[in-house]
Design a protein around this nucleic acid. Structure first.
Lengths: 335, 335
DNA sequence: TTGTAGGCGTTATCAG
DNA sequence: CTGATAACGCCTACAA
């Protein structure tokens, strides 16, 4: 762990100036024997470029940050999985931030962008506040937001269409003869919660089904919360014939409750989850789920970031990734 | 995205020298009105420290890298989940590397340590080669290895004990009256495969059960492979009363096969998985699994890293994290 | 208490 | 083609 050699060390050893060393190291035109001397010295000293000094000079860190609510959440994980290789291929490193869904932490990350330790930030905020928007607008490095931001916000934006996603699921249930479609949602003051609620109402309407508040339960995006919500909904409306769940975890909680209540899935109650995490395939019965394109969104976000870094002047893009229904056993399997 | 203000900008605006600005910003003793002037100017300019320049001077980046084979693997994910908060609490950022289990990539990461873009590296290599060991020994920044390295290697090391883990599981099955304990393993030429096989044989012996090669199936660490292995084992030995699986994915594959073969779990065949990933809790029946402490290993690795950064001279630690059996439905539930 | 000046390791300009 | 030399933004003796 000795102190590393610098271009000065090399210059001394090779008997040339640091300028020449730098030239050789950067492949600029140099006389053959100078090149040889420098390369030899560098080799012998085990020289490695100092990335920090390099960044100071070049104003590029070759690092991109990704900020999400929770590393453990499979949805974000799917994004990381796609983002990482795209950045790596372009020579960027990935700096990970987990904000625990604390808004202040997200703002912190945005603020720390000013420290210039990264060339850009990809973020997937759970809630988008005024503060977010203000800081994004004045950020000193490019930002790509995964999630809904108001139209016209000057930022590259990748959106899911959970609205359409819910609709896909409800149509599917309706198509399989279900008429009393319960809805287990997360908090309405979150972006996904609100969008999914709207999608649910609209889908019902499109199917010609009435909106019945008794069939809706609002809880949180966790398995326990899903179980609780399912329990309450079943107590209130024992005649419910299907459950649209706002994410896979909620659906797993619902499956637990249905099982112990002796309701068969899908015969008595069909269940649809959302996000199509790996849990959906692991569950029994395997869970029909709406893939909102987390993976795809991650990939697109990374690509937008690279595009912006390549051309800071380009227009802001808004990309919406379409949802896809993955049918499994919990709604009766592939038709 | 205008060019950010520097201490020079502030100095000019506040009418003081950059030294004074630096002092104020670092809380060094300064006259009150100077402090006021500087703070005001900084505020107005929206000044944020440049982390790169800072690092160049301080020789500290406050970044730690974590290199693993695959971001998508739940085992590594569990590590990331624990590492992240520990580092964050200590003021370090996490730089993520996914090497796709390519040894050359791991060596690359080790090499790039010389670039000093991070203060240290935590790595969980899939295989530990001579090259790894050589580079670790001469690395210019501290390294913590999660996984087995030869005793005496000059590096902080966190190990799992899958040997003991298999034994825990086999003892559990034996304790519940199972006598024909099948074993679905992954490749024997991998470190975990070999260790688990040895653990299985030893555990049988300790329980006074004979080792029967017919009860052992070697495949791979995937769900499909697990299903295939289970099918073959069941065909060969229909009287098997339990399955020890070398990881959770194999166990899920086995559950699929048992289900479609009409074997009840756990009544007819008990099943134990390994790694205790989130899939274990999602499965039905929920899967008894051996937690090899991925999370714990991540946490310990992060702490060892912090300890070493705090005291580079401290002795190298070797920590072995004990396995823990998590009993769920697939073996009959909590006793 | 404050300012001047040098250095962290590179890159890049500009004379020779 | 090569070698001084000046940045990049910050910190810190050292001197005033």
């Amino acid at each position: 762990m000795a102190d590393g050699p610098t271009i000065n060390t090399i210059a001394e050893r090779a008997g040339v100036s640091i300028a020449s060393v730098s030239r050789v190291l950067n492949g600029l035109p140099t006389r053959q024997d100078t090149v040889a001397k420098v390369m030899k010295a560098a080799q012998e000293l085990g020289y490695v470029r100092n990335a920090v000094a390099r960044s100071l000079k070049s104003r590029r860190t070759h690092q991109i940050a990704f900020a999400m609510a929770d590393v453990g959440n499979p949805v974000y994980l799917a994004m990381v999985r796609q983002i990482q290789p795209v950045l790596k291929a372009a020579g960027y490193r990935l700096v990970l931030h987990s904000t625990d869904a604390v808004v202040a932490d997200e703002i912190d990350v945005l603020h720390s962008l000013g420290e210039r330790y990264v060339d850009g930030l990809i973020m997937s905020p759970i809630r988008v506040t005024e503060d977010h928007l203000r800081m994004i607008a004045t950020a000193r490095a490019p930002v790509v937001v995964i999630g809904l931001v108001p139209d016209g916000t000057p930022v590259d934006n990748v959106r899911a269409d959970s609205h359409a996603g819910v609709r896909l699921a409800v149509d599917h249930l309706h198509g399989r003869g279900r008429r009393r479609i319960g809805f287990l949602n997360g908090p309405l003051d979150t972006v996904p919660g609100a969008a999914r609620h709207a999608g649910y109402r609209e889908a019902l309407e499109a199917c010609g089904l009435p909106y019945d508040p008794q069939l809706v339960e609002v809880g949180d995006f966790y398995r326990e919360a899903g179980a609780k919500a399912a329990r309450e909904l079943l107590a209130r409306r024992p005649d419910v014939d299907s459950l649209m769940c706002a994410n896979d975890l909620i659906a797993l909680g619902a499956l637990d409750v249905l099982r112990s209540a002796g309701r068969r899935v899908p015969e008595d109650v069909a269940v649809v989850g959302m996000d199509d995490t790996e849990l959906a395939a692991a569950a029994w019965p395997s869970l029909t789920s709406v893939d909102l394109g987390s993976a795809e969104r991650g990939r697109v976000a990374a690509e937008l970031m690279l595009a912006r870094l390549a051309d800071p002047e380009r227009e802001h893009s808004v990309v919406t990734v379409p949802p896809r229904l993955v049918v499994r056993e919990s709604t009766g399997g592939a038709a």
